[in-house]
Amino acid sequence: MLKHTFCHIPGVGTKTEKRLWNSGILDWNSPLGSFKLRKKAEGTFQSTIEESRRSFELRDPGYFGSTLPPKESWRLFSDFRDDVAYIDIETNGYVGPHGYITAISLYDGKRVRYYIKGENLDDFKEDIFDYKLLVTYNGKCFDIPFIESHMGIKLPHAHIDLRYTLRDLGFKGGLKGCEKLIGIDRGELKGVDGYFAVLLWRDYRRNKNPKALETLLAYNIQDVVNLEPLMIKAHNLKLMLTP
């Protein structure tokens, strides 16, 4: 899909992109011919196509992540699926100087890694750079800025925030609501939510309750594992709706 994409070019929105496709200009190798671009796009079209080719050949999704509209970032998935990390964080419930990360889970489609405050949380700072593309739900507003500000690192990765893609498809109700719409059942963890995760952490810290930590991690891990079928569903639905 990415090689058929033009909406990351300055001055080319999704409407112009559809006109390009309808005119037979289907990918980056198609000549423009007599197609008329807006003035804003005329000067940047060819140079952006050339940069797109270079970035694609270098396996660099970061370029496209910085130029694609957020609701179109789903287009990165099929070409960079082998470089994906699905991530989600849990916190102590506070923001600002009193807030901190209690756990992070990372899933790459094959294995799960998890990180716990006071044990191995700093390992995340290195492990996350094994990947080039992040997939989250509401990560643009919450997870990524929280990680960057509280762990002192910058995450320059390309990023698909499923909140925007799923909302554009008509999915509502937050992560759990979207899961229900595609038939994901959380089983024994059905009643656990973000606030309950905060209480689990407090129980673990105050009472040294290993069961509380076990449940917290199970909840956090389920969040990231469930992102994969949501990503696949969103990607396939978007493809079906693309001319």
Rank of each mutant, 00 (worst) to 15 (best):
H159D: 11
P10N: 02
Y131P: 06
D127K: 09
Y219S: 10
L199R: 11
Y115W: 09
R167H: 11
M240G: 13
L213F: 11
P156I: 15
V192G: 06
V198S: 08
N138L: 07
L189H: 09
G93V: 04
Q222G: 01
D83F: 12
G152M: 07
L217D: 00
R59N: 15
N209F: 05
G139K: 08
R167S: 12
R186A: 02
C7K: 02
I182W: 00
T67H: 03
E228T: 08
V112H: 04
I104W: 14
E57N: 15
I49T: 06
S30Q: 02
A103M: 11
Y164T: 01
D185C: 00
K110T: 10
F45Q: 01
R111W: 02
L26S: 15
S105M: 09
I89W: 06
S78T: 13
G109L: 10
V112T: 12
L121V: 11
H235E: 11
L2Y: 03
G109R: 04
G11D: 01
R113I: 02
I184M: 02
G187E: 04
A234L: 10
L237P: 06
L2G: 00
M1S: 10
G43P: 02
F196M: 15
A212N: 08
L37S: 00
Y164K: 04
G24Q: 07
D127M: 10
R163E: 07
R206W: 09
L175C: 04
E90I: 06
D168S: 12
D130C: 05
H235Y: 15
T215S: 05
R205E: 14
I182H: 00
L58A: 15
D82C: 00
F35S: 01
F142T: 11
E17D: 07
I144E: 13
K176Y: 00
V224A: 09
K132W: 07
K154A: 14
L133F: 07
G96S: 12
G109I: 10
E17F: 07
F80P: 12
K71E: 15
G24E: 03
K3N: 10
G118I: 03
D122H: 11
Y219A: 07
G152S: 14
F6A: 00
G109D: 11
P145Y: 08
N120D: 03
A218Q: 13
K172F: 08
A41N: 09
G191Y: 12
N22F: 09
N209Y: 03
L239K: 15
